[in-house]
Design a protein around this nucleic acid. Structure first.
Length: 959
DNA sequence: CAGTGAGCGAGCTTCCGCTTGACTT
């Protein structure tokens, strides 16, 4: 049984299990039974309504209506204090999820509630898959219908299918709902527990997730392969052979295949690192000299046809589109990004041109098959149409198949020409692609012949050689007439409709080589992922869903894990750091088979063989004994990995990506710093650093480029030369913001000196707030470098007073006594007497206290203290003099009410660490703080049973 | 990645899947 919902008053679990069959009999009031049908998509609702007639009201949920809270702002006040509020899942209490109606769905929900009032029965007709079942359950929980409820399922949107579905309803499948909920909670735990690890160890705002982390890993791994790649050279010989004047074509090309019974290496004999594969002992690799010598030796030698092998060639049409193949082909043929493809497809769908665009099925309905066949017949003739209808059942990993393939809508298809007036641009081109592919899928195989010829000869130097040539002729193009798939590298001669013709030859026939050209090749690195290629890889691995391929790509782009160079996806250095961390410390979570294993486990939950709580317990808390559970469960569970194991993760190591050793043998390392990636190496115990340019792809970082970067002094804008010292002055961005500094000439090493003289430190100075690196003048820079300025001497103490710029802005310094200055210009203008005047004032105790409140409020509800709004370093906050609480998103200084202010203060008080209670072990290291916090919180939750139980009790049996 | 002296209010970031408008310039 699925989770009882937190946040809703315990619902009748049986409401979905009404066994009453819908009838068409009249109800008590004498009118016919009215039914509300809820589907997921508004356009689907519109389409179905006329099929069902006036006794039905068809509405849509517009996808999911509830979800776990995204963050603190979504958590209802009632649960705010709970230890698990951040996760939205009470892990200590049977993993009870807290569901909230998604803010933008509130109006949808109230509309559905209204509609429900007018009917006698509810039919939940969400998609027939795991997510659809869950949406149906959420609708049930949220709407709390008083009328009977049934689950309606259909796989095809035709009148007969819809009517049949309305007559043959079933109960909600709680096991399937459980499987979905398990998936949802797993993803939440993974994402919300692992991401904070990245914030602590790498950079804030990064993210990890079951899908995005594996996608990122794929891209990083490919780049690593490219970095490790060493191009290898191999040679062969390209021959042009003459078959005699009667032959057509008379001459043709052939390539050297064998030398003395050993196969000549081709590209396929090299691995992804560019080196000859192991086990290729039987292969001979020719170098240039050998190839030249052999070509010469073959000059004017007789050749003869050793074999002619002719085979029939047939090629079946490609299956109709599903989301992933549509994105791939639109990417290759139209150069659309995944997002662009989906945006266009959405428009076509909404306007009734195509069927649903988020699908993992290649199935066509019977009417669609008929439409495609009749249109193919019309356009190309009977011979081109397949003898019998073709159904494509190629199973995609983890496919849910809730929808049809993507095809032109309707019972007869409109040709691209027919819609050209209504649709243009991207939409037209995409429709054309879909239309062609659909038509082609019902056409006949392409047929032809492939011929493979071997030609033997002996070189003057004694080697026996074999040349090979192959040809393909297409005698009947079949479906190729309508649609040819584009190959990844864009080469036309690899395409399915490519032809190459050979003359008719017979065994033993003599040939002469008119040309023998030694031909050099070099292996090239595996190419980077493009968007379509990544989508294909994800689909093959079963990670991500049709509705998320495009958004996953967007996510990894947004996080800065990946950037686009043309159409190639290039990983950032941050991605290297994050993937490295994940592989090292969360290996099970980024395993390429993790999702596949999860899907199997979800299947056993869906079938009732496993339970949600049992599975999640293993995942989160680990399992004893190695006999059962997932990899992560055996490793002790996620909680341990993000908790006590955290201190094992060394941030410095994680953020260091070793590259290579330079000529002197020093290791060159890329470091991912707070302010971007930079190179570092240690030379003679001294650290050398260099910024990495943003547009340098990791695989382009060669030793040569590294040396160049090291040799360039830290870039910065050159402002000119200091007339006094002759030093060049530059402005650049630094750790503490923009600053100016001088470039000192290399100190001369005196003859015979044992040690290098100590490097003199260059002068530096932070820019004023009014200045920028791009606009600062040499004059300003020299003024900044002149700081600190000696203002004068305190006549009382004899101490020197200086004016300088610091971390908190401009200030005066006299020994250890300091005073802030009000403006940066004052650094140059303040006089000794003004300075002494300032020193007469007592030291300001905190700027916040000195600043007047932004607004005054009434008394706090609980403490009866006066509340005021103040502006602080972190923005406006409310204080009652004791407790301070920042205003949240949505609160404004002008509009906040006393009630809201009190609420914020109360929340803050509740969160404040208990001051007098425990005196725990001091000096908790930064990395263990999180783990500790969790412990404290869960204890608190247990000691206040009234809060953590109540409406949230669940009946799920524990396994 | 430059290096200089206070004391003070943090809160938020993040996942995967299902669906489309409603916003602003």
């Amino acid at each position: 049984m699925a989770a009882a919902t937190t946040g809703s008053t315990g619902s009748a679990r049986t409401s979905g299990g009404s066994t009453r069959k819908p009838t068409s009999t009249a109800n008590a009031s004498g009118r016919p039974t009215r039914r509300l049908v809820i589907v997921e998509s508004p356009s689907k609702a519109k389409k179905i309504q006329p099929y069902l007639g006036n006794d039905y009201v068809v509405e849509s949920s517009v996808g999911h209506i509830r979800d776990l809270p995204r963050g603190a702002a979504d958590v209802p006040a009632k649960y705010k204090g709970e230890s698990w509020a951040r996760l939205g899942v009470d892990v200590d209490n049977q993993f009870s999820p807290l569901y909230v109606v998604t803010p933008e769905k509130r109006s949808t929900v109230s509309e559905l509630r209204e509609a429900l009032k007018t009917v006698d029965e509810l039919l939940l007709a969400t998609d027939p898959d795991r997510e659809g079942e869950a949406i149906a359950w959420h609708l049930l929980e949220t709407l709390q219908p008083k009328v009977p409820v049934r689950r309606m399922v259909f796989h095809e949107i035709t009148e007969s299918a819809i009517r049949a579905a309305a007559e043959n309803t079933r109960e909600l499948d709680q096991h399937l709902v459980d499987a979905q909920e398990t998936r949802r909670i797993l993803d939440r735990l993974y994402g919300y527990e692992v991401s904070p690890v990245l914030w602590k160890k790498v950079m804030p705002k990064l993210s990890a997730g079951r899908v995005q982390s594996v996608a990122t890993r794929l891209i990083v791994q490919r780049e690593r392969d490219r970095i490790a790649f060493r191009s290898a050279e191999y040679w062969d010989i390209a021959a042009t052979l003459d078959a005699g004047e009667k032959a057509t074509p008379r001459s043709f090309g052939a390539r050297l295949l064998q030398v003395d019974d050993k196969r000549v290496a081709t590209g396929r004999d090299f691995d992804s690192l560019g080196q000859l594969k192991k086990g290729s002992a039987e292969v001979v690799t020719l170098n240039e000299a050998e190839a030249r010598r052999l070509a010469e030796g073959l000059q004017d030698r007789p050749m003869e046809v050793a074999s002619v092998d002719s085979k029939p060639y047939t090629r079946k049409p490609y299956p109709p589109f599903m989301t992933s193949t549509l994105q791939q082909e639109a990417g290759r043929k139209l150069r659309f990004s995944s997002e662009r493809t989906m945006r266009s497809a959405q428009r076509l769908y909404e306007n009734g041109y195509i069927t649903y665009m988020r699908t993992d099925s290649t199935t066509l309905s019977a009417t669609a098959i008929e439409a495609a066949r009749s249109q193919a017949r019309e356009l190309y003739g009977d011979a081109y149409v397949a003898d019998s209808p073709r159904q494509y059942t190629r199973k995609v990993k983890n496919a849910q198949e809730a929808h049809e393939a993507i095809r032109p809508a309707g019972e007869s298809f409109r040709t691209p020409g027919a819609i050209a007036r209504e649709v243009d641009g991207d939409d037209f081109r995409l429709y054309e692609l879909i239309w062609q592919r659909t038509i082609a899928s019902q056409m006949n195989d392409a047929r032809g012949t492939t011929v493979s010829i071997r030609i033997a000869g002996t070189a003057g130097t004694g080697e026996n050689v074999v040349f090979g040539a192959s040809g393909r002729t297409i005698t009947f193009p079949g479906f190729l007439k309508a649609y040819v798939e584009t190959v990844d590298d864009g080469s036309a001669d690899q395409a399915d409709d490519a032809e190459s013709r050979l003359p008719e030859l017979t065994r033993g026939q003599g040939l002469t080589a008119t040309e023998l050209v030694p031909d050099g090749h070099s292996t090239s690195p595996p190419s980077r992922f493009t968007e379509p290629a990544l989508v294909k890889a994800m689909e093959e691995m079963g990670i991500g869903r049709p509705s998320t391929y495009a958004s996953t790509i967007k996510t990894i782009l947004d996080r800065g894990y990946v950037w686009k160079k043309g159409s190639a996806l290039v990983p950032s250095w941050v991605a290297f750091a994050v993937v490295g961390l994940m592989e090292q410390h969360f290996g099970q979570l980024v395993d390429y088979d993790f999702t596949a294993a999860m899907e199997d486990d979800l299947d056993s939950i869906a079938s009732g063989d496993d339970s949600r709580v049992h599975w999640l317990s293993g995942f989160y808390f680990g399992t004893d004994g190695a006999s059962s559970g997932s990899e992560i469960a055996r490793a002790g569970g996620l909680k341990k990995l993000v908790g006590s194991n955290l201190e094992e993760i060394d941030a410095r190591t994680v953020n260091s990506i070793p590259m290579f050793a330079d000529a002197a043998g020093n290791d060159v390392v890329v470091r991912v710093g707070r302010y971007g990636p930079y190179l570092e190496r240690i030379v003679d115990g001294e650290s050398q650093r260099a910024n990495l340019p943003d547009d340098l792809a990791p695989d382009e970082l060669s030793e040569e480029i590294a040396e160049k970067l090291f040799s360039v002094p830290q870039e910065g804008r050159k402002l000119g030369t200091d007339p006094v010292t002759g030093h060049e002055i530059v402005a650049k961005e630094g750790r503490f913001g923009p600053y100016v500094t001088e470039l000192l000439p290399e100190p001369e090493v005196p003859e015979g000196a044992k040690k290098k003289p100590a490097k003199p430190k260059p002068r530096t100075g932070s820019l004023f707030k009014s200045m920028t690196v791009d606009t600062i003048t040499l004059e300003d820079a020299l003024r900044l470098l002149s700081l600190p300025r000696i203002v004068g001497t305190d006549p009382d103490s004899g101490d020197e007073i200086t004016a300088q710029n610091g971390r908190y802005g401009p200030y005066l310094k006299k020994g250890t006594d300091s005073r802030s200055l009000s403006g940066e210009e004052q650094l140059f203008t303040v006089t000794l007497s003004e300075a002494l005047e300032i020193y007469k004032q007592p030291k300001q105790r905190g700027r916040a206290a000195a600043a007047p409140p932004l607004r005054e409020l009434g008394e706090d509800a609980s403490t009866q203290k006066k509340m005021v709004i103040k502006d602080g370093r972190f923005g406006p906050y409310v204080t009652d003099g004791e407790t301070n609480a920042s205003l949240r998103k949505g609160d404004s200084v002008e509009e906040i009410t006393d009630e809201r202010a009190s609420e914020l203060l109360a929340e803050r008080r509740a969160k404040a660490p208990a001051k007098k209670t425990t005196t725990r072990k001091p000096a908790a290291s930064k990395s263990t703080a999180a783990a500790k916090k969790t412990t404290t919180r869960s204890t608190a939750a247990k000691t206040t049973p009234t809060k953590s139980t109540g409406t949230r009790t669940r009946k799920t049996p524990t396994t």
